[in-house]
Each structure stands twice: as C-alpha cells, then as structure tokens.
C-alpha cells in the first residue's frame, strides 16, 4: 500500500494496552482485522486468558490511586483525554470510517460526538456524588451521610458495532466515577479502541486505570466474568446467549452486572451509565448535645 504520491507508508503495529504499557498478546497470536468491505486493515493481538489476568492485576493495582484521587483531578485528566482526541481527530475519523463503513462526513460526526462525550463525563466526576449522595435525616442524635464510591475493577465488554462512540460511551462513565476498567474491544472493529489506548497513555491517565484487550470477545470475557477479583461487568457488547453465560459466571462473586440493552449511542446518556458501578456507603456518627447539660433528668 502506498500513498497517492507514491511514498511507501509506515504501517502501525496495533498492540494491547495493559498497565500503561503496550504489550503484544502473551499468546503471541494476532488476527486479521478487515474493513467493512472485507479488505485487510491490520493485524490485532488475539488476547488470551493470561492477558485478561494481567489486565485485572494492572486494574486492581491502579484502583486505589484512581479511586482515591480527587474528583477534580479525575475531571482534569478526562478532559485532557478529550483534548488529545481532538488533536488526533483525523486518525479516528479514518479508523471509524474504515471499521464501520461510514462516509468521512458521518465518521467525523461520530468522532465529534465521542469527543463531546468525554467532555460530558469529564464534567461529571465532581458532581455525581452531589446528585446521588447526601445527608439522611435519621431520627436520632446522629450525623448520617451517604456517598457514592466506585465499585472497583470493571470489565467492559465494548459494543460490537459502534467501535468508537459506543466504546467511549461505556468506558468514560466507568472511569469517571473512579473505577478501573478492563475493556474488551469490539471483536471485528478493534482498531479505534487500540488507538484510543495511545491517547490515554499520553493524557495523564495513570497506567492500569484503563486496559484494552482485542480478540475473541467470548474467549476473553469468560475468564473475566468468572474472575474473583473483578467487581463488575458491563455486558454492552455481548449477545444474548453470551450475556447469559457471563451473568451466570459473574454470580460466583456477585459482580454487579449491567445487562445489554438496545442503546442509541448518539442520544443523551443521562446518568444511566454512571450509577451502575457505584456503591453507596453510609457513615454514621453521633452528634448529640454539647455536653452533660443537654440531658436534664
């Protein structure tokens, strides 16, 4: 393949993104990724169970720091991701157009929507607690406060069709709320996801907060659904049969499960994807009187 001016172009080797690094699959295997018309685009790593395991280790390691970072800082970092995406807009437009068989104009609209979605979620980091948490007026001398906390390590089965806007729409809310993610990219359209990793790596997102695996969805998702150190799973990209199997496996450690449902990725997402991977923690503390004079006999 060559550019129109006859120069031989440089191909990109797509790699996984695990713990902030770009490894090849531990299996040493790749698979062919074609465009919507069936033309070969690139080879993508074919992730194994061990890659999935490594990704969970990386996500767990990153969880404390990411969950413990200030919501303001998470917002800053997510906004930085949007800035970097904007700079790479043309690359993503090309990759989305090829992957999804869209015209350049339509692909451009999709990428713009995806960037705007990052901005939307970047702004949510320090507001969600005020929307879903709050003080509770208990009938007693106690201060009582409910606050949302991230669930932990979340496996995200990314949408199969919407390789970029869909991906962003499921990933951004997971990490905006302080979770860390192991993402299974669209099986047939993994390239925008693997390119997103390069953006994340250069946007101050700490290594391990997002880990991206490409390959056979069922092969990767099955061990992740059963993994005892994964706390939740978003089944957006699983078909009905796979989703059921994964949900059964997820019950072993009572993962929080977000079932697949028809979604219009271009519609306003509201908070529906921010809340499924939040836990509510309620803290009590005595208030009472100022001292012994408060209780007359």
């Amino acid at each position: 393949m060559s550019d129109s001016n006859g120069r031989l172009s440089v191909f990109k080797t797509y790699k996984l993104y695990v713990g902030g690094k770009f490894p090849r699959s531990e299996s040493g295997r790749v698979y062919e990724v074609n465009d919507a018309k069936g033309n070969w685009l690139a080879n993508a790593p074919l992730s194994s169970r061990k890659d999935a395991r490594d990704a969970v280790v990386a996500a767990r390691k990153a969880f404390g720091g990411w969950a413990g970072a200030t919501a303001y800082l998470r917002g800053q970092i997510l906004y930085r991701v949007a800035e970097m995406l904007e700079g790479r807009r043309e690359q993503f437009v090309r990759e989305v157009a090829e992957a999804e068989g869209l015209s350049k104009a339509k692909a451009g609209a999709v990428v713009d929507a995806a960037i705007d979605r990052w901005v939307w979620y970047a702004g949510w980091t320090d507001k969600i607690a005020q929307i879903v948490g709050g003080g509770n007026p208990v009938a007693g001398p106690f201060f009582n406060l409910s606050s949302p906390e991230p669930t932990g390590v979340v496996t995200v089965v990314a949408p199969q069709d919407s390789s970029f806007l869909g991906l962003v729409s499921v990933l951004a809310p997971v990490i905006a709320t302080g979770n860390t993610a192991v993402v299974i990219a669209s099986e047939d359209r993994p390239l925008p996801a693997l390119s997103l990793a390069e953006v994340l790596a250069t946007s101050d997102v700490p290594g391990g907060v997002v880990n991206i695996l490409s390959g056979k969805t069922a092969e990767i998702a099955t061990p992740l659904a059963a993994h005892q150190d994964v706390n939740a799973i978003d089944l957006a990209g699983a078909d009905a049969q796979l989703a059921k199997e994964l949900e059964i496996a997820a019950a072993d450690n009572l993962k929080r499960v977000l079932r697949p449902q028809p979604v219009d990725w271009s519609a306003d997402p509201g908070t529906s994807r921010l809340t499924p991977f939040l836990e509510t923690k309620t803290v009590w503390h005595p208030t009472g009187s100022l001292g012994s004079g408060g209780s007359s006999y």
Binding site: V138, A139, F142, T280, T282, W284
Partner: peptide, 21 residues
C-alpha cells in the same frame, strides 16, 4: 456499605443500607 463510627447497629428508614462485594 454501612460504617458506624463511635456507634454500632443503628438503623433508620431514611438511611440506605446494603453491602459491597
């Protein structure tokens, strides 16, 4: 899901109750 500081086993209908993990 529920942390009691300087108290324990307090319940109230206004106060959400439930677990992690």
């Amino acid at each position: 899901g529920v942390i009691w500081s300087n108290t324990f086993n307090k319940f109230d209908p206004t106060s959400p109750f439930g677990g992690y993990k």
